[in-house]
Write a protein that binds this DNA or RNA. Structure first.
Lengths: 348, 348
DNA sequence: TTGTAAGCGTTATCAA
DNA sequence: TTGATAACGCTTACAA
């Protein structure tokens, strides 16, 4: 920058003015500086600029792993929204490791970012409240509520309720829930709670627990019995574990005519397993998912599912973050995103 | 840091020494500093550190979009490898926009990173040679060769050759190539070129062109005719476009008993389309892909495909980049990654 | 409209 | 083993 100033015969300040499009620069001066910049191939040093400005223009995104389609698509949306606001995204993968999740908040990398979008999977509300994040954090997902942080969450209960109700409306009477908690581990704290009230007090939970609550509500509303045998836990939500759980259920002779996958990944495992065992979808068993991944529309058969826009999640998260930058003291907000049901070929 | 020094009764330099694990610090001093750090909740400012050190510890990853499973998985691998080496990843999405791709190299964000892993899709060798990247670049993928940059590439020709040969060995005689270039647009420059020799001179090409060359070689080696009618172009490689191309082929009455998808995304569209038209896979038509995405193993039927490890790509790319940091003047290298064929249920 | 000079929070040199 | 002091490359009061 010094060289540019010298070559253009102006001061450092003038070069800076030109670079930053400061309006009160004589046209002739601007031209000279621009030429000097080109001649020398000068590029601003963003690190120095950031140091001086006190912000980095980067936000962190911490997710379990990009390899899961859901998080890949989410990251894509976050990058897209960030870009539209002139921000960059520093991605961190916590790899289903609680220590890594906790480290995210205090991380040295935090000081390279202005804020963090954080999707925890394992740490609990207590740990999160105890941690002192270096800068604003917006929570994504369903792990913790009520910890005094801004939060963009999906309509877990209502979405799964709608999914289950859809299967029932199409004639299913014995609906298996794939990816559920273990039958003796279902949490009843949410029985009378509206989705938007989750933030009232500290809660540690899981997507499984919230979604199975939606499943139960749908059954209750339809007057169908809740049969714990129909809960098919999978551990991590993956195609493989979903397929394994359904295969196992078939082989045990479980009687079911519908499958609610608690997310699309496990749901996508079901048709695979059913096909291998010669069960017709949707003729004998209907399948519905939750997320509407890109690939779900091209599964065989195409998966009926609950659509939640990753782009919308990202937009809301950024809104919350930028609001927080502007008014650091404002009350934390929980935003529950809307959903729609997308009918495809895996239901009748 | 000043406050820490004051509280601990030492100088700035000593605090720095402690933070950076400089060995020659008296134990007692180290303790006092550590306590002061804890008491004040001090955290290093990475931006300042980076400015002073002259490096950022971040590398950029520029891909078309994370939403495509392939790039999501690749990004995951890159983040994983970066993490293992204490580096962070700044992700940028070029969104199939040539201007955005070109901007990647000169970008202000470049000065926030020490190097770039770049997967171009649209810009050509000429543009790439003309651009003066701010710091080391490693190319990923198959768009340009021979431009004097380090490069990690897949075995496009040989991989697709193996895929096609596999179908033929399983009895296919009329193999459609989904995701190919248009029949009158097939490039013959590669006819006698070995994969590893691609870097000899500047070449602008596409994955389509290289992979269709592999397809042709396999046909030739099996003594089967090359029938341009069997080329099914799709435009962008997506499940949707793959499905559409195959549906269209069926409806036109095209005679084929095998499908080589030039990547898994288009290949995964094929069983979908075939199922909709009541064609049995692999009974009547066998399908094979290229990439081995996570989801391919759980497609219905599970997709036989050419496996290339994203992790290996990432490792090689980092190797090249770190080597380049160490020896900036070394000759650029092209590394062509190995592949294996994974047999699943979409072939006989 | 442009210039001077201070300072952002570190690390590195050199001396003590 | 520790300290003073000068950078790193930029932005920004403030002055001219």
């Amino acid at each position: 920058m010094n060289d540019v100033a010298t070559l253009a015969g102006v001061s450092l300040k003038t070069v800076s003015n030109v670079i930053n499009d400061y309006p009160h620069v004589r046209e002739e001066t601007r031209r000279r500086v621009t030429e000097a910049i080109a001649a020398l191939g000068y590029r601003v040093n963003t690190t120095a600029r950031n140091l001086r400005r006190g912000r980095t223009g980067m936000i962190g995104l911490a997710v379990p792993e990009l390899q899961e389609s859901y998080f890949g698509e989410l990251a894509d949306a976050v990058v897209q929204v960030a870009d539209s606001r002139g921000l960059s995204v520093l991605i961190e993968a916590t790899r289903a490791d609680a220590a890594a999740e906790l480290a995210m908040l205090a991380n040295e990398r935090r000081s390279m970012t202005d804020g963090l979008l954080f999707s925890p999977l394992l740490i609990d509300a207590e740990q999160l409240r105890a941690a002192v994040p270096a800068n604003p954090v917006v929570l994504l997902g369903e792990r913790v509520f009520g910890v005094g942080l801004d939060h963009a969450s999906l309509a877990n209960i209502d979405g799964t309720r709608a999914a289950t109700a859809h299967l029932i409306s199409r004639g299913a009477r014995r609906v298996a829930a794939v990816g559920s908690p273990a039958a003796d581990d279902v949490d009843h704290r949410f029985r009378d709670l509206a989705e938007g009230d989750l933030d009232r007090r500290p809660i540690t939970t899981t997507s499984e627990q919230l979604r199975i609550e939606g499943y139960r509500r749908a059954l209750a509303e339809a007057g169908l019995p809740y049969d714990p045998d129909l809960l098919l836990p999978t551990g991590p939500w993956r195609r493989a574990s979903g397929a394994a759980a359904v295969t196992d259920a078939i082989d045990r002779g479980l009687d079911f005519d519908g499958v609610v996958g608690l997310n699309d990944a496990v749901a996508l495992g079901a048709p695979h397993a059913l096909a291998v065992r010669g069960v017709d979808v949707p003729g004998s068993v209907q399948v519905i998912g939750f997320d509407d991944l890109d690939e779900s529309a091209y599964a065989t058969p195409a998966l009926t599912t609950v659509h939640q826009s990753r782009l919308e999640v990202a937009q809301v998260a950024f809104e919350l973050l930028l609001d927080r930058f502007a008014v650091p003291t404002r009350e934390p907000r929980l935003v529950v995103l809307p959903f729609t049901l997308v009918e495809r070929d895996s239901t009748r």
